[in-house]
Design a protein around this nucleic acid. Sequence first.
RNA 1: GGCGGGUUGCCCGAGCGGCCAAUGGGAGGGGACUGUAAAUCCCCCGGCUCUGCCUUCGAAGGUUCAAAUCCUUCACCCGCCA
Length: 423
Amino acid sequence: MTIDLIDDLKWRGLIAQTTDEAELRKALAKPITLYVGFDPTAPSIHVGNLVVLFVLRRFQLAGHNPLPLVGGATGLVGDPSGKNEERTLNTTEVVGQWVDRIKGQLSKFMDFETTKNPAVMVNNLDWTAPMSAIEFLRDIGKHFSVNQMLNKDAVSARLEKDGISYTEFSYQVLQSMDYLELFRRHNCTLQIGGSDQWGNITAGLDLIRRVESASAHALTVPLLTKADGTKFGKTAGGSVWLDPEMTSPYAFFQYWLNSDDKDVINFLKVFSFKSRAEIETLESAHNANPGAREAHRELARELTSLVHSPEIAVRVEEAARALFGQGDLASLDEATLAAALAELPRTQVEKGSEIPTWVDLLAATGVVDSKSAARRIVKEGGAYLNNEKVIGEDFRLEKSHFLCGKYAVLRKGKRDLAAVELL
RNA sequence: GGCGGGUUGCCCGAGCGGCCAAUGGGAGGGGACUGUAAAUCCCCCGGCUCUGCCUUCGAAGGUUCAAAUCCUUCACCCGCCA
């Protein structure tokens, strides 16, 4: 351990709050066990979750024992933190499926094989489900003061708005129980989470202190912000997910590549496992010539490799280069073209049948929401066929427009691409 | 439980019988300029078989030649009083 972990995290801007920092540093001198929880609120985790997940990985790389936790129980209840209204409950079957999928995703980022400090996957349903209501109220509930619970930000914010159900009000107790349980089972002495989790985490610390007369630690990661004030990890279409079915690797790569200049170095610090020196080299390259976007490319490559695979990352980048390159599409060979288009939304046309009109094709690929939108975009001069602007609404493709006799590339605006395949 | 106010397009928010697919802002989209960036400027922003037609203004009924606008019932929210 040549680099101090806490110093590195600070440099990356990854520490919002900690319990006694001096104590924490002292504790980290030896390998400790720590956990981070992820609630199944969707079938996949998204890039926002990556921030704290990667912090967990950084701890493992530094020799500590990570416990990725999937909230099979807490996901059934709903965390009020950061939400200004009550959530609708998902069924146990649905949450159960999500738990499995999220476990799979979390696994990709942890090392379970190493003999030194392997990660251990845990699910809070394992200790929460068997507990009876009486046990819960007597053994756990007795240690909580409602007065204090009401004072937590997540709860008081909701009391001032539309109120909060008993279900969500109880969330902090469940999460505290997790920390206590992991302390007992694994001697887990550090919990990490987003800064909105501070209240829940400290509630756990209090519980451990009361029940076990022991002290443990907390570390929270700041909410990631973007220079333009919009939410990180969201696009017009919704969140950027890790699941390739929900966000294609191509779109995933593009999300990072299109980062604001003002954000890109920050993103590297947060998401990249490159060293400080490497990131600083990229930073000076970026400042010297931002148009080259070397930092953006490295960011997109590294994350796509990590989340999908190095092979996919290469493929997706090549696709982007082919489709955005000024080189004309007609000169591409069929294999390159097919590979590039594989990443895009597409529609198919039977060889014998009549080729639909330009407007119909645009709508069919889904680059626009409706035919009206397609007409609008054509009228505004934002529709392109094989990188050439097309004006008439009634325009029809002909056989000769299909590159290699098979593919046509549709584009809306600068970067929204789709393919038409002739079958 | 009583009285009063509200529920409008992705979000906020005008409209209060015909001139309303519905003012304005934000978000979003296209163009220009660039670097598949930001900022800026211009334009667009319910759908369709598109000089017209269809579906929208919490839900369901009703009045009227005509309703987002009036009436009735229901649901939810917000105040004040119990």
